[in-house]
Design a protein around this nucleic acid. Structure first.
Lengths: 221, 221
DNA sequence: CTTTATTTTTAGACAAGACTAAATCTATAA
DNA sequence: TTATAGATTTAGTCTTGTCTAAAAATAAAG
């Protein structure tokens, strides 16, 4: 199994993530959108990855990761999330600042580095956005049942365990409203006309749009 | 000042290092040897770097770094040595294992990352091989007067402060003889016929070849 | 079951960074 | 000072990853 280029690795991650969301197979145009490139470039890359047996590909039918490709994707996600954790926990970065840097760090090749980093961080199970970190074997810790905040019943007490959008802009919005992983949260009012909600967060009331509440993952307490 | 490719950065580092050793200007073939590539490839790259005003270049006359190129080189060296320090101090790597990984990590683009890492490591002045780490302004801490072990007078007490060869093979040789940065060292005998020496290191006697002693940097105590 | 719209692939080009082989410049020795 | 060895550059090619434009396959609608 020879070294992949950063570009190849980025495609693998994108295919993995689309495969999770929309279920396989992944279409060429969807991938092109995700990679911010053209469909023809995607076709080229798909051929390369197929040659390397990382994806299965039938012309005009889209592609899906092979077992091998899946392992590759999980290793990358592991590295990405470990580095994000490192940046936040050890280097005092904000959770809105780490994605770009982790995108670079995830390509560093060294199994030992990854595993030592994992140990140094004390084998974290979730990253700063609440996303699960695959272990050295690629196993992902499954969450207890969770909800999006907009599915939560009124007056039900819950705690924030993740975000469905890790863009800097959304994360800074949450910061401004003092919403973090671990925050206690409770729905106090639903405004039918626009599906926005009055939320009690750490003893303060704020109003959140439907767009916002649909991106906050919570667990009952 | 636009982003450099990893390849361009590697050339800048190589030019810097050759410039230090043999003093400028740096010849095309020397660079080709250092980069393990062909002279024609070097000529191509030299033109690119010259266009970007990182080196000064006269056809057939070799090249040297401009002020700008020098700053670029020092930033890379700073990152490289900070990462090596991190790997050894925080992730328990041996000093013989860190070079390759730091070669990758030094290309990560983020000023904040570098500076936070520096802070996290408590602003180290020297890396695990005893090489000085440039600060955020590119300033390098100058050493007190130092010697190579083969220049040290008999029975003169000294301490190991660096190595002139950071290859894994030489570093593992030092490990095997329990020679580390900070080790107390003293020459007890010089064998004229091959210039090898009997050395007292932390209360143990070992014989080191001329090749070995010429690569160990020490300071008088 | 055709026709049209959409998706996907092919064909041909380009830039970066590398290579080989050939040409050219510089320096050294007779 | 000229012949020639050694260093350096040019010319032309290759691969990776990208692009545009055009062709082909599939899906959807009448």
């Amino acid at each position: 199994m020879d070294q992949l280029t950063q570009s190849e690795e980025n495609y693998i991650k994108a295919i993995y993530s689309l495969q999770q969301k929309t279920s396989s197979p992944v279409g060429t145009n969807d991938l092109a959108d995700r990679m911010d490139t053209k469909a023809s470039s995607v076709t080229d890359m798909i051929k390369r990855l197929s040659d390397k047996k990382l994806i299965q590909y039938k012309k005009y039918k889209g592609c899906e990761l092979t077992d091998n490709g899946m392992r590759t994707a999980l290793k990358l996600i592991r590295k990405h999330r470990l580095w994000e954790t490192f940046l936040v926990e050890k280097l005092n970065f904000g959770w809105d600042e780490v994605h770009e840097i982790a995108e670079q760090l995830e390509h560093i090749q060294s199994l030992k580095l990854t595993d030592q980093l994992d140990k140094f961080l004390n084998y974290p199970k979730f990253d700063p956005h609440g996303d699960p970190i695959p272990d050295a074997e690629g196993e992902i810790q499954q969450r207890e049942q969770s909800f999006k905040l907009n599915e939560l019943a009124m007056d039900q007490s819950a705690v924030v365990i993740g975000v469905a959008d890790s863009s800097a802009s959304f994360l800074r919005f949450l910061d401004r409203h003092k919403i973090n992983l671990g925050s206690s949260i409770c729905v106090k009012e639903v405004y039918e006309f626009d599906d926005s909600r009055e939320i009690l967060i750490n003893d303060e009331l704020v109003t959140l749009s439907a767009a916002a509440t649909s991106k906050i993952t919570v667990q009952l307490v």
